[in-house]
């Protein structure tokens, strides 16, 4: 039971689960930002998804319904941000921050009767035939629950859509040069609305996965800042869905790794270990810009800039 390799496998498969809480919001924000909308409200959308997903799961006794409701709740809350930043052409930073504060406030209010309740329906793990037999990899990645598999499929589908389809070209064009895409006949506002909504769906899903599977109960402020980490992971992934999992699992795994070091009695200060993922993000950004001599690491050119057709 406690041989080194089985500890490694157990901790890694836990890292994948706790990484999934981050992976979903990161993927969503990548698409929203690709469309030119910076949404600092991930934390707020996550916690809204976490509460309403939890309530729905609790009432229907079905984690899958809970997850879908959590996604929808997150998506609807993102529409507030879309309205302010697209229709009103407001400041996206202010609006996103307000959305985070709003999310924390509204869940504090509506969450009161649900505090201390726990969600007791266990979510089953499924072994993928064939793949799950691969040593280590199979144990870690292919003995998971349906939500984790959903995130795998989603990640690949999103990468394909973004870089291989016309829909993806439109999405990227809107974030790179809204005026030019408008001239080409792409509906800028409709695209931006949709992808902001989509980002909210996934942020809500990440929150719901937290309260339905990973820490299945409701307490105020349960996301504890994970939305901000997702925001950093977007940069870490250089706006590419396929790289998002590296950062997400790294953040999930770093806890496991640094806790493992602590539990075995290391003398490295835990605060130093806690710093690792943030340090890595910085290194990736610096390396990508300086070492690769690439000025454009995927940052959408018009990220955060409102688009006004009338303006010249």
């Amino acid at each position: 039971m406690t041989s080194q390799s089985s500890i490694f496998v157990t901790l890694s498969s836990t890292a994948v689960r706790s990484g999934t809480i981050l992976l979903l919001p990161t993927l969503g924000e990548i698409f929203a930002e690709r469309a030119g909308i910076l949404n600092l409200g991930i934390e707020g959308m996550m916690i809204i998804g976490a509460l309403f997903g939890f309530i729905a799961g609790f009432v229907t006794k079905n984690p899958y319904i809970g997850f879908v409701v959590g996604m929808i709740a997150g998506g609807l809350s993102a529409l507030i941000h879309a309205f302010v930043s697209i229709t009103l052409r407001g400041n996206q930073i202010v609006s996103g921050l307000a959305l985070t504060i709003f999310g924390l406030g509204i869940t504090n209010f509506f969450g009161q009767p649900w505090i201390n309740r726990k969600f007791t329906i266990p979510v089953k793990d499924y072994a993928i035939p064939g793949l799950s037999k691969i040593p280590y990899v199979g144990q870690i990645f292919f003995h998971q629950d349906l939500f984790v598999y959903f995130s795998y499929v989603l990640m690949i589908a999103m990468w394909f859509m973004l870089f291989k389809t016309k829909l993806g070209v439109h999405l990227r064009a809107v974030g790179e040069n809204a005026r030019a895409s408008d001239a080409m006949g792409v509906n800028v506002n409709r695209n931006r609305y949709f992808w902001t909504f989509f980002g909210g769906l996934l942020a809500g899903g990440g929150g719901a996965y937290l309260t339905l599977v990973y820490a299945p109960f409701w307490l105020d402020g349960i996301t504890a800042g994970r939305g901000w980490i997702a925001l950093a992971l977007v940069i870490f992934a250089m706006w590419n869905p396929l790289y998002a999992f590296i950062g997400a699992y790294l953040f999930g795994g770093i806890d496991a790794l640094q806790f493992q070091l602590q539990a075995s009695g290391t003398t490295i200060p835990s605060s130093l270990l806690n710093m690792q993922p943030y340090l890595l993000t910085l290194i990736v950004v610096v390396a990508a810009t300086i070492v690769l001599r690439k000025r454009h690491i995927g940052t959408p050119r018009e990220l955060g800039e409102p688009y006004d057709r009338e303006e010249r």
Partner: peptide, 12 residues
């Protein structure tokens, strides 16, 4: 208070 970190620690 950070339920995810606390669960990670326990799982470790």
């Amino acid at each position: 208070f950070d339920p995810v970190k606390e669960a990670n620690a326990a799982n470790t």
